[in-house]
Design a protein around this nucleic acid. Sequence first.
DNA 1: CATGAATGAGACTTCATTCAT
DNA 2: TATGAATGAAGTCTCATTCAT
Lengths: 198, 198, 198, 198
Amino acid sequence: MPKVVLEYKEEAKRRIVKHAMKLFSERGYYQTRMIDIANSMGVSKGAIYQYFSSKYEILIAVLEAHTTLREQEVRSFLDSGLSSLATGEFFDRMLAIRMSTPPLGPDIFREAARNKSLMEWFRINSEKWLQEFVDLLNEQKKDGVIRSGVDTEPLARGILALRDGLYSSLSLGTDIAKARTAWVEIMRILLKENLDEA
Amino acid sequence: MPKVVLEYKEEAKRRIVKHAMKLFSERGYYQTRMIDIANSMGVSKGAIYQYFSSKYEILIAVLEAHTTLREQEVRSFLDSGLSSLATGEFFDRMLAIRMSTPPLGPDIFREAARNKSLMEWFRINSEKWLQEFVDLLNEQKKDGVIRSGVDTEPLARGILALRDGLYSSLSLGTDIAKARTAWVEIMRILLKENLDEA
Amino acid sequence: MPKVVLEYKEEAKRRIVKHAMKLFSERGYYQTRMIDIANSMGVSKGAIYQYFSSKYEILIAVLEAHTTLREQEVRSFLDSGLSSLATGEFFDRMLAIRMSTPPLGPDIFREAARNKSLMEWFRINSEKWLQEFVDLLNEQKKDGVIRSGVDTEPLARGILALRDGLYSSLSLGTDIAKARTAWVEIMRILLKENLDEA
Amino acid sequence: MPKVVLEYKEEAKRRIVKHAMKLFSERGYYQTRMIDIANSMGVSKGAIYQYFSSKYEILIAVLEAHTTLREQEVRSFLDSGLSSLATGEFFDRMLAIRMSTPPLGPDIFREAARNKSLMEWFRINSEKWLQEFVDLLNEQKKDGVIRSGVDTEPLARGILALRDGLYSSLSLGTDIAKARTAWVEIMRILLKENLDEA
DNA sequence: CATGAATGAGACTTCATTCAT
DNA sequence: TATGAATGAAGTCTCATTCAT
């Protein structure tokens, strides 16, 4: 197949994945019909089957793309350094990135769990990201900014869990301002304990 | 209708809700067929319609029951006092309670959102529980155990978000031991900052 | 079985038939559920099965009872003599009788058509009644009241058809007063032609 | 949407309505399953839902089409003039037209009664047709062919009721020849009274 | 390549009938 | 006998997928 056609196919798949991801995130996998994806793109149902052989294939592609997009979030987190972590601006910036790649519901992960290699890839990714965060904390520790008694791995895990917990509380009706304040307060305590206590 | 019959009907509804809750939690609302609930109970699907006029009615009842059951968790949290909060035993006890009423996916909340009064009831419950937790922290603060500079509302919100974030990470494959350690470490820092800093 | 019990059973069957006939006439056979009949009588579904082994058996009994009740109408028709036929009072009297045994829809006859002997009984009844009407007209003819050139059998058939056509137009919204006037006018012409033309 | 597609959709709907009308008329609305309509057309049941969103929508369309087809019958009636009315040929011609659009049972009208505007359209149509017939009789009356003492509105109503009564007697087993004779005899009397009595 | 009509498996729901109490 | 909970066949409707144009 000529290169141009291949590229076109890739571009088409990307467009499908983009629209499907939005719909899956908004309505869930089972509540999204093939025709919803097609309508959202302004094409016909049949066209989608030129690029994906089933709805399940789209789901797999959506999850892969989702993970890739989420890497951005991780990078921002890591690139920010630790100093700005305990600020409302950081919370908002992270939230904006997360919203641009909204969370996928458990229905999607349940379906995807049939695909062992995909699940393994997820796990490895998550661990890699966590480890990078831990490494960053360890550097700070080595520099004496975090005192030696603190275990950085649980700290990293806790910070990420706090972030996820606050973001998910938003979809249950919590006010953004209140979630932001909680983040700032908790992070201040956590980092004060670790950074300032000289 | 005689009282005995009414009681039987209530008991039957409770049994249906129990089985439905388990299935909804495991597979999600749309992936649970009426026949799954029936099979799980060892009855025919027709029987269920004696007690609920539609699958949606079951969903509403499941959510109400879920909220009621979750109140237990809240009570344990509040009854524990603050001293045991930063322990692995506390984490495990809470986790056991949460597992006995496993989380419901967003598909269920999406459907239930059609029921305005139910949603309002949820919101009011959540706020009430959060407020009780805040009150408890405020007492500690009044007693001087938490120093005056700390805002207890964000603190309470953050602790609950941390708990939720850690629990949900478990379903994505995180090791329980690691989540427990994270809880203990973070809570130690949070409470040390507030309680021990004399 | 003792006679008293038999009589009780007959009475019970009659009550069921009465309620079923009303409902079948109002809603049709398929739109009437067994529980509707039971509720209408203030008994339970199960009780009905003590007296009829199926819904179809009730239908047969309803049709038999209906035919028997309709005989009243026929008798009134025949007993009135011919002189009062062309009056609004006659029309109203017949209508009242017909309303007391409201018409059964085609769904019921369609079902009953499976029962050959019942259908045969209907046919024979109808013919018998028509013949009695014809005989009456023939007597009038013999007395010279109806002139010899008129064929009484078609006349009888036409008068009955006119009656049925007018009554059924009522259920499609025709005003009773207008149907009554039509009856009187037409009957006046028909009988004037036959009776007065001396 | 291109015109060609629209036309195809219209044609498909017409085909569905045609088959549904036949089945509704033969078996009644509730006894006709969607799969019966589909089988009758040689398509799958799913296909029908491309054109009608529910069985009830088909019912509405069937009733509209039925009324339109019935207009033919009315036109034949009116176009025939009054002279041929009292003939067996007229009876047969009308019967053929009616059979080509067989009557719909009360179950259908009961269902359709939910649709107020449709019911209103029926009523207006019926009245319009009756009025046209009355106008025709009035013309004859003005020409002196019907004498002045006769009220044409009841006469028209009676003739239509006679026709309906005779046609419906056919479905209860009456011999066509006998119904035809009754029509001719009665109409002869009615029109002789009105036309010949010079 | 794109379209959308058609297919048919499968979900929810109804209701005549049975049967333990 | 009476009750009403339970059964399961059957009906309406949905939607992923196929395929002729």
